[in-house]
Design a protein around this nucleic acid. Structure first.
Lengths: 121, 121
DNA sequence: ATATTGTGCATACACAACATACACAGTTAT
DNA sequence: ATAACTGTGTATGTTGTGTATGCACAATAT
């Protein structure tokens, strides 16, 4: 498992976990059927509580990204490359709409946004 | 006062307030010395508690955007157009770094981002 | 059986939001 | 002058929500 959580971040730990695993799945880094580490092991590795990991896994389950089987484990769900691409774009666009509405509130044109973004990307 | 708060939003009310007033100041819509409405009046108008408005105003004060004078009111701080522009850019860039790191986590190039953003801006 | 896995429950803590009462500054009446 | 009134921000105490935790329970595999 390759995730990095920050205790100083304003974002809840479970959400950081969710976002990172989610991104990895939608990037295709974790293939279908891949078994996520047991929540206890993940908790130990990340030095957080079992509950926190479980909450992140629950979010993944709710988003349809993994399937959870009691006593067995959590597995990356099966879907076609097309489905995956669409899911990825939906996820990104959802966030992007929030981001752009923020930029708009400052009166920025899309050209302004591109200009600024080029500098830091 | 021209702000719109959403009770359904996941963001705290005081933060929505802060962000909107902050943006208006940095856009130059609220000129220096302008008097913000009294917190009671603002609270009544927005149908929230006095405390909630106060918390937002406190954030503005802490950011150096307004000056609070007990018994008198809260006034937009004085600064030059150059200072204002710089402050605005700093504020936007700070948020933009968070946004771009999210896009990067999905493996998007800056061209990918521009492509998607054009569609929704 | 025993070990491994996920699940449910009760709790501690932090924070957002609220109603109410308080303290300070300016203005007016005496 | 100074007391009283009005308008302003401030402080206190309470309630509800959400994050994170530990420990005990249920289901599965060998």
């Amino acid at each position: 498992m390759n995730v990095a959580i920050s205790s100083t971040s304003e974002k809840p730990i479970y959400q950081q976990l969710f976002e990172q695993i989610s991104a990895q799945i939608l990037k295709g880094e974790l293939e279908s059927g891949y078994s996520l580490p047991p929540i206890r092991q993940a908790a130990l590795e990340l030095r957080v509580s079992v509950i926190t990991v479980k909450k992140a896994w629950e979010e993944l389950e709710r988003s349809g990204l993994i399937n959870t089987v009691t006593g067995k484990g959590c597995f990356v769900a099966e879907f076609s490359p097309e489905e995956m691409l669409q899911l990825r774009n939906e996820t990104i666009l959802k966030q992007m709409e929030i981001d752009t509405s923020y930029y708009k509130s400052f009166g920025l044109t899309i050209e302004d946004v591109f200009e600024l973004m080029k500098k830091i990307y």
